[in-house]
């Protein structure tokens, strides 16, 4: 018999409580109350979910949304934790320091693996910050005081910052700006931009054409036009990333939030626990994807374009 963490009697007791909770949760949720003809104890999420973040207060006439407050909370917690860990950095680390070191070391390894030793260190702060911000936003939002529990008027006081489209969009813009900046600064603006506006070969062949080499010129014009078009596609894909970054994160996080609300609406207790686990995983995955893609794009941006 495998070792349990508690006695069999306790296990049975816990199972009975869980089962009772499950039955109660079934009866008090939407399904059960529909069967018994009562009212579900939680409101229908369809009535409370709205995509734009709710404005909960105004500071100097500037509207503050609940997602904004949540993101400040995230920043406070993250910075507080990192500060506590690094206030007295020691060669022989404390537990918190070694945890932070482990995490940063892991991130740093990823960055150095993708961009090389020197460039990886340039990427590291941005990539790590994106990761931390996304994952902490997602995970903090699973805490009980997030969501409709504490509310100001109709709106919850805290709401997962990832579910406000402005926040993924801002991250996407940051990612885009940094990637372009790294590309330009390590390859030179002219070289870097030539991958989007590749008119050099076309121009050269037009000159050839007027210089009298008609055959070569015509051939060159054809491939030149293709080059220009390929550059245009490249530019387009660069811009499309903004949209895909934004909606991937926004969509996943919002869907997760709605999923939890719906499960709670259907059965308020017990059943929702596995979904919390799922949301933890999804928060990690989304953070990984956002940071990882930024890193990948950065590595691609600093790779020199082969000249023909």
């Amino acid at each position: 018999m495998p070792q349990l963490g508690c006695s069999t009697r306790l296990l049975v007791l816990i199972s009975i409580i869980l089962l009772a909770l499950l039955v109660m949760s079934f009866l008090s949720g939407a399904i059960g109350s529909a069967l018994t003809g009562g009212e579900p104890i939680l409101p229908n999420p369809g009535e409370i979910i709205q995509l734009p973040a709710e404005e909960v207060l105004h500071i100097f006439g500037f509207p503050i949304t609940n997602t904004m407050i949540a993101s400040w909370l995230t920043i406070l917690i993250v910075v507080g934790m990192v500060y506590a860990a690094t206030r007295r950095v020691r060669l022989i680390p404390s537990r918190l320091q070694s945890f932070i070191e482990f995490f940063f070391g892991w991130m740093l390894n990823l960055c150095e693996g993708a961009g090389g030793k020197e460039q990886g260190r340039r990427f590291f702060p941005v990539v790590a910050t994106i990761f931390i911000f996304v994952i902490m936003n997602a995970w903090l939002a699973l805490l009980p005081f997030f969501g409709p529990g504490i509310h100001v008027g109709e709106a919850p006081l805290f709401r997962c910052a990832n579910t406000d489209i402005n926040m993924p969009l801002a991250l996407a813009i940051m990612s885009f700006v940094f990637v372009e900046y790294w590309g330009m600064s390590s390859l030179g603006a002219r070289h870097y931009l030539s991958r989007f506006f590749n008119v050099g070969p076309l121009w050269g062949s037009i000159k050839q054409l007027f210089g009298g080499k008609i055959g070569a010129g015509l051939n060159g014009i054809l491939s030149g036009v293709i080059e220009v078009f390929a550059g245009f596609l490249e530019l387009l894909s660069e811009l499309v990333r903004l949209v895909s970054f934004t909606f991937r994160l926004f969509g996943n996080m919002t869907a997760g939030e709605i999923l939890l609300l719906i499960v709670c609406f259907l059965m308020p207790w017990v059943l929702v626990i596995p979904f919390y686990g799922l949301e933890l995983l999804i928060g990690f995955i989304q953070a990984m994807i956002f940071a990882g893609l930024t890193l990948g794009f950065a590595a691609a941006a600093i790779a020199p374009r082969e000249q023909e």
Partner: peptide, 12 residues
Amino acid sequence: SLIAYLINFLIL
């Protein structure tokens, strides 16, 4: 909000 988030990110 977008600008606020950009600033938030840069502060972080």
